[in-house]
Amino acid sequence: MDFQKEKHEYLSMLVDHGAITQEQSDSLSLLNSNIGLHSNSLTSSLVDCINWGWQSWLKAKATPEGFVLVPKEPTRGMLIAADNCEIDGKVTAHNIYKAMIEAQESANDS
């Protein structure tokens, strides 16, 4: 992950939404660990809020394109979908997997 690029996108989003000013954004730098931002000119409470958002931003970006996040244990809806996944009279591992993922995605949408 390119942390500098992510930092730029995250802070630009905050500026675009009026959460911080461009000047405040310019004062923020990545900590050596890349898991936090630091500023010598902003209040610690503002930096804490920005860092809470930064952590959420990074977690959201941790799922690569084309992948989905699913629970460790299948939900009831996923199990029902797997039980009813017969397509053209066939039950295959692919059909079961696809049905369970679709059930989870629709649960995430609601």
Rank of each mutant, 00 (worst) to 15 (best):
G18D: 02
S29T: 14
S45Y: 05
T63P: 02
L79D: 02
S106M: 12
S56M: 13
I96C: 15
Q4C: 05
K90G: 03
V70Y: 01
N32D: 13
K7W: 15
W52I: 11
D16K: 10
Q55M: 09
M78I: 06
K61Q: 14
S27C: 03
L42S: 04
F3D: 14
L31V: 15
S29A: 13
A99K: 03
E9I: 08
T75Y: 02
I20G: 08
M1Q: 12
N40E: 14
V91I: 12
P64T: 06
K61Y: 06
T92K: 12
V15Q: 09
I87Y: 08
Q55L: 05
C85E: 08
G66F: 03
S12I: 01
A99T: 00
L79A: 06
D88A: 05
K90R: 06
L46R: 09
E105G: 05
M100V: 06
S27K: 02
S27N: 04
I20R: 04
L30R: 06
M100L: 04
I101R: 01
T21Q: 02
N95H: 09
S56H: 12
H8G: 00
Q4E: 12
W57E: 06
K90S: 08
K7R: 15
P64H: 05
K5Y: 03
L14Q: 01
K59M: 12
N108I: 13
I50C: 00
K59V: 08
